[in-house]
Write a protein that binds this DNA or RNA. Structure first.
Length: 494
RNA sequence: GGCGGCAUAGCCAAGUGGUAAGGCGACGGUCUGCAAAACCGUUAUUCACCGGUUCAAAUCCGGUUGCCGCCUCCA
């Protein structure tokens, strides 16, 4: 069964057949570096990170390009506000981007080109477009003539008449048609500029992606993606420029991720509900937002809320607990495998066997269906429940059969974790980290807790249940939950 | 005004023709001194509403209502 991808260009799920067998060229629009990245950038980045990882899991050799827009009106504005050179702004926010995305556990793309490193390529492309009659210079600016590109609107599903009818486009005297867009903008005094055949200026926004994608991936390549908001005009314009210049199809599969709302409201600076990645990472383990996003289909809008993130955290905690329990069972148990388990485990064993053996197929089926990570996670929860059942019947007396299944299950979780960027930490370290952060939050010391546990253990030995329960309730009110296990009393954060 | 999307349990969420995954929560049970954790069970005869097509519809078609996005910089 082939991988199927929903293609914005056709509005349908299509079999994914790359241009060259076993190789994929993929371009994702990155960010304009004039401010800190927010949770919406995080979603987009995570979506394409997982697509990148899954394609490689599927055996493709993937060239993944993600650009930086490092020259643009907003950057210039910011630089003016802060009284610094535009390059200082760009550099600063590229650095912050790298810190944030690293923090989220994103893999590095194959290439991360910057717009300003490709100005001459843009000038060449613009020249070609002028030669071919698709663009026209006017007083130091160059515009793309939308009316002369017959396929204009094919990505966003609109036609020229409609757009002109409802046009809210700024009327620019220089444009032959209000829908035409700038390929090159002349610079005003004091603005950064590059020399060009049309005078000093800077590139328009869309041209950079056409140039950089084609430079690293060829004139026609497999996948182009970004947030839904980029469909129009950005990606529409990229197609127009590129195809008008080369006469060949540009990107073959267009993938767009849905938006992030915050508490049911669109995230925007004016509403003041703008969440940066730094704020998220201060509050949550990086895999929490990841699990949260992957619990939804990448094309659906997603509502970010404290509760949803907490739910994701609960899920992540459980996975790590299961992972740790499995490791303990496999590693710490002394060798003679005399165990009989608890008995009555035949049914559990068979059930688990079925789930574990079919897991990989089900995972791949889900992912092959337009990267249905939510479905895949459903299977992962199934797997986890079965593994916990095995642990339950094993409890310190694993049989060969149980150990084998536990190991297979562990391998599966690890492998899927590699595709999803989840469960990358050592379970025990993850759990310790959760505890430490919880202690800080509740302003408690571990020593204090251990002393209480010690006193309670003594009370329990004395069968002084009243005292034991008092101590436990006291800790509970401070945010600590106790678990009595055969190997002693454990504690965790509420 | 134009274009597009969405509506599935208390909440979150998969599911595009074959009889409703999964998670959180809640309740009951096993275990436990009691709990916690884990496991088992229960929690949508039904997928916004009304029609239609079909042997069969959450899924397809038409209509209604409600929400959202895009058309301007935006992940």
């Amino acid at each position: 069964m082939p991988l199927r991808i929903y293609n914005t260009l056709t509005g349908k799920k299509e079999d994914f057949l790359p241009l060259r067998e076993k190789q994929v060229g993929m371009y994702a629009c990155g960010v304009t570096v004039y401010d800190l990245c927010h949770i919406g950038h995080a979603r987009s980045a995570i979506v394409f990170d997982v697509i990148y990882r899954y394609l490689r899991y599927r055996g493709y050799d993937v060239t993944f390009v993600r650009n930086f827009t490092d020259i643009d009106d907003k950057i210039i504005k910011r630089a003016n506000e802060e009284g610094v050179d535009y390059r200082a702004i760009a550099e600063k926010y590229i650095e912050e981007f790298n810190i944030d995305m690293g923090g989220l556990g994103l893999e590095k793309p194959s290439f991360e080109p910057k717009a300003t490193d490709h100005i001459s390529g843009m000038i060449d492309l613009i020249s070609t477009l002028i030669e071919k009659g698709s663009a026209y210079p006017k007083d130091g600016d160059v515009f793309f003539s939308v009316g002369r590109f017959k396929d204009y609107g094919k990505l966003s599903g609109r036609n020229l008449e409609e757009m002109q009818a409802g046009a809210r486009v700024e009327i620019d005297e220089k444009k032959e048609d209000p829908l035409d867009f700038a390929l090159w903008k002349s610079s005003k005094p004091g603005e950064p500029f590059w020399k060009s055949p049309w005078g000093e200026g800077r590139p328009g926004w869309h041209i950079e992606c056409s140039v950089m994608s084609q430079k690293y991936l060829g004139e026609t390549f497999d996948i182009h993606g970004g947030g839904k908001d980029l469909i129009f005009p950005h990606h529409e314009n990229e197609i127009a420029q590129s195809e008008a210049a080369t006469g060949k199809p540009f990107a073959r599969y267009w993938i767009h991720n849905g938006f992030v709302n915050i508490n049911k409201e669109k995230m925007s600076k004016s509403l003041g509900n703008f969440l940066t990645i730094k704020e998220i990472l201060k509050q949550w383990h990086p895999e929490v937002p990841r699990l949260f996003f992957l619990s939804h289909h990448y094309r659906s809008p997603v509502d970010y809320s404290e509760e949803s993130l907490l739910e994701a955290k609960t899920g992540l905690d459980r996975f790590y607990s299961t992972l740790k329990a499995i490791k303990d069972e496999i590693e710490i148990i002394p060798s003679p495998l005399t165990g009989e388990g608890k008995g009555g485990g035949i049914h559990v064993l068979e059930e688990a066997q079925k789930t574990i053996h079919s897991f990989q197929t089900r995972f791949e089926e889900a992912m092959d269906d337009d990267f249905n990570t939510a479905q895949a996670l459903g299977y992962l929860y199934d797997l986890q429940r079965n593994l916990n059942s095995l642990l339950d019947i094993s409890k310190g007396h694993p049989t060969e059969a149980i150990l084998t299944l536990l190991k297979q299950g562990l391998d599966h979780i690890r492998k899927i974790g590699g595709v999803f960027g989840l469960f990358t930490g050592e379970p025990s370290e993850y759990l310790v980290r959760q505890k430490k952060e919880g202690l800080k939050k509740f302003n408690l010391s571990e020593e204090e807790i251990l002393q209480s546990i010690e006193r309670r253990s003594q009370a329990r030995k004395d069968k002084d249940w009243k005292k034991a329960d008092e101590i436990r309730n006291d800790l509970f009110s401070k945010g600590i939950i106790l678990e009595d296990t055969p190997s002693g009393t454990l504690w965790k954060i509420k």
